[in-house]
């Protein structure tokens, strides 16, 4: 039997508990540009919050899409905009990342516009409760903080080991990156930060500095630094994967979003 001639399963789409679906779609990003995005949603009609997953600099890859499905499994509508849609539409993630890097990286304003578009898309979906969180790892960690500073409708932000939120950016990088010191007073969402004590970017000292600044600005934040964990400890396909840190980190994320992305009332 070919796929084309296979009968549609009874009751498709499956709405039994634990079911979810994932698809590639198009959304309006910065300045209304149509960009690709990967969407995963839990089945059923239960009210749910949304999560925007910001992919890391190596791209809109399989592992990031896996995280999107993980959030759907946790009960959220989740979406990852392809930040390289403009430079390299249809290209493989690593080739697209190479083009984006050669072009100087993703400008901050465009990133913020793309996250805003993704958040608006999530809020437009059936059963959305209107709450939207953001999360990113590595470069995406910085961008998660950036989005929560520049946008006023993010309900919870997660920064997983983002470099250059604080600290001096070395000259001559040829990429459009600055620290976020001028933006931090505008942080408009509770922030969960997950870090490794073996990481130097951000270093434990920079994490402490960020905590000090957020306290000074009166911001709601929660940081966890894992002993023995280095940069990238959430990445199951990389040597830095750290099972205890990643497992506890996922639990912290679930609790954080459970608290801040639940429907009011």
């Amino acid at each position: 039997m070919t796929a084309e001639s296979a009968p549609t399963p009874a009751g498709f789409p499956d709405t039994s508990p634990g079911s979810l679906f994932a698809t590639t779609t198009a959304i309006a990003g910065h300045e209304g540009d149509e960009i690709e995005a990967y969407l995963a949603r839990p089945a059923g009609s239960r009210s749910r919050g949304g999560v925007v997953v910001i992919h890391h600099m190596p791209g809109y890859d399989r592992e990031t899409k896996e995280m999107v499905r993980h959030f759907a499994e946790l009960g959220y509508d989740a979406i990852c905009p392809n930040l390289y849609s403009r430079e390299a539409p249809g290209a493989s993630p690593d080739d697209a990342a190479a083009v984006a890097r050669a072009n100087g990286g993703v400008p901050d304003d465009r990133l913020v516009g793309d996250v805003a578009g993704a958040a608006a898309y999530l809020r437009s979906l059936p059963y959305a409760n209107g709450k939207v969180g953001v999360i990113g790892h590595c470069s995406g960690g910085r961008q998660s903080v950036l989005a929560a500073c520049r946008l006023d409708d993010i309900d919870a932000a997660v920064d997983c080991y983002g470099a250059f939120v604080v600290g001096e950016v070395p000259p001559g990088l040829n990429l459009k990156v600055t620290n976020l010191l001028p933006d931090l007073p505008n942080l408009s969402a509770p922030l969960l930060g997950l870090f490794g004590d073996q990481d130097q970017h951000p270093s434990p000292e920079q994490v402490a500095e960020l905590g000090r600044l957020l306290t000074e600005h009166g911001k709601d934040f929660e940081f966890h630094t894992y002993e023995g964990a280095g940069h990238g400890f959430f990445a199951p396909n990389r040597p830095a994967y750290n099972v205890p840190a990643a497992n506890d980190g996922w639990a912290r994320i679930a609790a954080f979003y459970g608290k801040h992305l639940a429907a009011e009332g």
Partner: peptide
């Protein structure tokens, strides 16, 4: 970290 360092030629 993402070092961001990029040299082109």
């Amino acid at each position: 970290m993402c070092t961001y360092t990029t040299i082109k030629d």
